[in-house]
């Protein structure tokens, strides 16, 4: 593709895309710290995640401002329009991922006040997959790699399946020992938050797919979260 006749326009679009990649980096770090905080029962790390969430929020606002400015000044069309829309929407999704990391860390602070629960191994596994999904979808965005985006879109199923099994594990735990109900309930929310991070990665994958191809991704994504089906 050629360069824009108006150089400043091309530069503004490139800067917008870079801003999204930067925000992705911030959020990736937040998720990584939130997961290790909960797994290693690291209170100071969890506190740091809560305190640093504002950085993701600032990055989000910066992207919205840039995107609005381009819309107002350049009236982008075709792939340029998709570029701006994608940045706008992806930043919103990443902001939510940052919020979820913060939520995980807030729960961690509470969890650290009671005895450790064995089940944190499963949380670690879920956390690892969520981090991989986030990394892959950000790579798909920066590299404009539609195959990678599709892979993330399909792989979220894995995370959903883990969540379902962890949900069952926690139920068993709570039934066996009522004293674990409080920490288990918090862990359940932690697991749900991680599962939601995967969902937002899926949304970003859809955005990347639209950005590159101009087409919506197919409708029926495989679902493996069965914790809401009866009898589970």
């Amino acid at each position: 593709m050629g360069e824009h006749t108006v150089k400043a326009y091309g530069e503004a679009l490139a800067e917008l895309s870079n801003a999204v990649a930067r925000m992705g980096g911030i959020v990736e770090q937040q998720v990584a710290d939130a997961i290790s905080g909960v797994v290693r029962r690291d209170t100071s790390l969890a506190q740091a995640v809560v305190a640093k969430d504002i950085r993701a929020d600032d990055a989000h606002r910066d992207i919205e401002k840039r995107a609005t400015r381009i819309l107002a000044l350049r009236q982008p069309l075709a792939n340029d329009l998709r570029e701006v829309i994608a940045a706008f929407k992806a930043a919103g999704e990443l902001e939510r991922v940052g919020d979820l990391a913060k939520s995980v860390s807030k729960r961690t602070l509470v969890l650290n006040q009671s005895d450790p629960i064995q089940i944190t191994r499963s949380i670690e596994r879920m956390g690892r997959i969520a981090q991989e999904l986030l990394k892959d979808v950000l790579d798909a965005y920066t590299q404009r790699d539609v195959a990678k985006a599709l892979a993330v879109w399909h792989r979220d199923e894995e995370l959903d399946a883990y969540y379902t099994s962890l949900f069952r594990e926690l139920l068993t735990y709570m039934m066996e020992d009522a004293r674990t109900i409080t920490p288990c309930a918090h862990l359940l929310f932690v697991a749900k938050n991680i599962e939601r991070i995967g969902d937002h990665c899926t949304n970003v994958a859809e955005i990347v797919h639209y950005l590159i191809t101009g087409e919506e991704i197919g409708r029926d994504r495989p679902k493996s979260d069965e914790s809401t089906t009866p009898e589970s």
Partner: peptide, 9 residues
Amino acid sequence: TQDYITGRF
């Protein structure tokens, strides 16, 4: 078409 409507060379 894309190059024209988006203002590219």
